[in-house]
Design a protein around this nucleic acid. Sequence first.
DNA 1: TCGTTCCGGGG
DNA 2: GTGTACGGAACGA
Length: 801
Amino acid sequence: MQHDASLKRAHDAPPIEEEWLWGWDPTPGIVSVHAEQDGRAHVWRRIPETGALVHERERFRPWLLLDRLDDLAHLGEGLRDAATAPPDETIHFRELEGPGALRFLVSARDGRALTDALLTGASRRLDARVRHVAELGDSVLALPPEEQYLVATGRTYFRALAFDQLHRMQFDLETTGLDARRDRIFMISVRYPSGDTEVLEAHDESDASEAELITTLVQRVRDANPDVIENHNLHGFDLPFLDTRARFLRVPLALGRVRERKLRQRGARRGVATGDPSEGRRIRFVAPGRELIDTLDMVRRYDIGTRDFASYGLKAVARQLGIAAPDREYIRGDLIHETFRADPERVRRYATDDVEEVAAISRMLGGATYALAQMTPRRYERLADTGAATGVIDPLLVRAYLRAGAALPAHEPGDGTPHSGAALYLFASGVAHRVVKADVASLYPSLMRAYRIGPARDRLGALLALVDGLVERRLDAKARARAAPPGSAERHSHEAMSAALKIVVNSAYGYLAAGGELTRFADVHAANEVTRRGREVLALMCRELEARGVTLLEGDTDGVFFAVPEAWSESDERRVVNEVGALLPPLVQLELDGRYAAMLSHETKNYALLGYDGALTLRGVAFRSSRSEPYGDAFLRTALERLLTGDIVGVRDAYLATIGALRTRAIRTYDVSSRVRLTKSPAEYAESREKRRELPYEAMLASGHTTWSVGDRVRVYRSAKGEGRTIDTPDDDTTAPDPRDYDVEYYVRLLRDSYAERLARAFTPRDFDIVFAHPDQLALFVSPVEDVKPILTPLARNGFG
DNA sequence: TCGTTCCGGGG
DNA sequence: GTGTACGGAACGA
């Protein structure tokens, strides 16, 4: 089939806003597109009804957008108006309407002829050799071939295809270490689209065996012929490692659907640095015909909305999502190869668990990106690793303008107006009871819609039209998800669509504020108008809440925490939220987002909440830190629970009990250790050691580790002699030693200065000294702890009326 | 101590 | 066109 780039609409086309959202070509089941600059495209589709795979070879007219035709004038008769030219032979142009700078849509049968002609003309005009279209900067819009194809055709991936119909394969390398130049692959676990798993292994530690292992993997991929290849950190580890090993061993790495001996590369901000140290060029690998999907990207994207993965590591994520099997095998990274030598079966189980978890995470979190690919003219794998503003909204706008026959504005850097941000207030610190969180859902997009705040240069009003359409679709998707049976594929896909739409809607504001070098229609004035309205809404909300008798605690654009009087019931709380919500601008909805028995407000975005069900929620660096010692965390949790239930004697008891346990060494060594990341190599530390000794490295050396890799994490503690020591995590090895030779008084001091200190806002200084008086101290003038009451201190209201 | 830069992950 | 998250930790004066 021949697709041309005129983008002319038929008379019976659906409403143009629908086309802006979804494209217009209904071709179902596209699972991968690979296009070349010469106008050839490969399309792989799954027939939704049968699941059969078809491979279609197509031609399209590669196209560019230019701000002038001057550089093509030298073609003479070779450049023809698309309206009158014969369809195939020549280079066509079409002038788009409206004021945008990029107003000439030019296309050719072979894109190379087009770019060559353009570069020739530009070189003459500029009297300098122009080698690449990118050198012409913003006077040209040149998309990657696949995106040219999708924009021109109005096609998108995955129409009428459910996520579960995709053929997804996972593989995971087990290697002797992290450095592909030095270490090798000894095992690859594989999970097939059928759900079957297999473990491939090198027979010995020779190059030939590793080469054979890679060859077997390639063969398995070709046989299984998946649409998608997935793993956790696939682009950051497995593919670069595989690529390096395959080059070194001179093994073909034909993982794609077109016969090529190597993976291709594309520039990618979030990719890996290339071998040559030439200034920060980063790439990701491409296997034409398959989509290479990294579940780490999914986790990052998901976390933007939910914020709360303790770690983005595979095991932690799987546990947090509740998909880790109870008998899941765990092996510490640096022990995998040595475990394999002693107990290969254990490593086989471990590696298989990895691919199983990746498949489950992908199914749980991958829907949003999948749904984005159903609307956006980009490859699925590119949508997986981009931000929504430049990665989704910009391509949607480009397609919308071309479809409407409208010229596109070029990027504009902005007039120097600074971008003003959101407001954040801390109204009080200390302990409050009967706390309510009121939340404004999607404040910024709601303000954009309510006040019609869009980019000044968006003459079609496409951004606001997209946001309106996306919000409506989202409400619809949410309703459909609710109506579908829990756990069903149908519910899954509606929820995924809803999540995708939320991502795009919420990034509409980010699109405005991103700055003109980044997004085509960026508009700092419009962005400032949105934040100004947002501050107005927050101020109004706070004033009106206060006028109804609540005590304000903390407020920002996400929502407001406040405490209500003792006599109030839940329905009083709801009534007040509804009353205040009714005073807010149209489309801005205030919801009661949470109710808590008590809160310790420490600093902005740093607080502890005790739910009515007894659940403790900690937020902010003061209360949760990956470096903190387990004994301190345990004390803090207990103390906070008791503090928030009013049991001040209990707080002191917890403090004394912890000191007692330290002194009798009832606390495990592991529980006083802290996790640190080694950022200096052994050589670097050797150099700086004379000047300054650092506990973690001293600990490594003292425990006989003379080598380590930068980035390794170890647990260290301070011994009674004041020296650093390392200790293993007990889960790793149940026979791990537990010497309990830690520096007791050091950890007693740390308990007070670091952990008890985080409760300081709850008390007057005098009462704090009573609650946390040292056990050896004589209680001369000390009044009884029983009399101590927690306090709430109002703070100066900087900038708040 | 503060301000700035870097990192997240993989064996 | 590689595209500007975000929050915590480490680094550097």
